[in-house]
Nucleic acid binder design. Structure first.
Lengths: 147, 147
DNA sequence: TGGGATAACATGGGATTTCATGGTAGTCAA
DNA sequence: TTGACTACCATGAAATCCCATGTTATCCCA
């Protein structure tokens, strides 16, 4: 379970600390980390190899010639298996740095089964947007029926 | 089941004692505690990891592009897995302290499957409001058993 | 039922560890 | 031999752990 948000620095070698709680989460379940371009936002998505495998399996379920399958294969092509250094840092590949407009700061945002890595400004935009939607439409129905 | 209300002190390190009955409740069911921003009020909500996992699972069931999925992911980003110290205290993350306008006092309010943490003034407001509604509209019609 | 003993609880403080980050040495390839 | 990449060491700040203490609640026996 990836939860919470943290702001970490990216150094000149494109190294960042993955938040400790995310790391522990991966270690506990003996998973390796995969980073790839989000299909939905201008950010990097990080997840476990197991979940990535689920995506791959999902492609097989689709019509092999469909646009969806095409897009998913493209996503795989821009995915990276990432190794940690002894201090829990990773190097973000150039492709991904550029894609997410990352420079010297990264915002890690846990979203349950995976996490996003945003540039600070893009994160801010998305957060504002969520507040706006919440204000206009209220919380998801799911939340309301729970008590 | 989280019930009853109690007022506890928040110290300079942002530590608070979680009411013993809440703690016992978590321990008995072998659950870890999750704290997150309420989507409805200006308060922190506490619940079990199992319940949080249910929300996470729900995200995958929704249309990934929908507002509801978006809001739920944002909710995860503002959620924290919380550890107790040996005396049953937790540290409230800064984000949550600010969101709920907490300073040196916290009101714990059990509401069944989860609980709220309010600032004293906000709690007072909500309490007044409930009394007002009760006076004007009378007690709620409870439907205990549904089919 | 009362009153003292005992345990549970909330809170304070200090020692220790973890974490994020900077840096350097070593390795491999061009 | 140079440049890029990787593995590991160093450090200050921050989070965490654990001991101490007073106060409240609970228990037990008279």
């Amino acid at each position: 379970m990836f939860l919470s948000t943290s702001h970490n620095k990216i150094d000149l070698k494109c190294r960042v600390s993955i938040p400790a709680s995310f790391r522990v989460n991966l270690e506990k379940s003996n998973e390796t980390l995969i980073l790839f371009k989000s299909l939905q936002f201008n950010c990097i998505e990080g997840t476990t190899s197991t979940r990535m495998q689920a995506y791959i399996d999902a492609i097989d379920e689709l019509d092999a010639l469909s646009d969806d399958a095409f897009l998913l294969r493209m996503m795989m092509a821009d995915s990276f298996e990432i190794k940690f250094d002894i201090n829990g840092r990773v190097v973000i590949p150039d492709t991904l740095m550029n894609f997410a407009n990352l420079f010297d700061k990264a915002v890690f945002m846990g979203i349950g089964e995976s996490f996003y890595i945003w540039s600070p400004t893009e994160y801010e935009n998305q957060y504002m947007k969520s507040q706006q939607i919440l204000k206009e439409k209220g919380p998801p129905k799911l939340i309301l029926k729970k008590n």
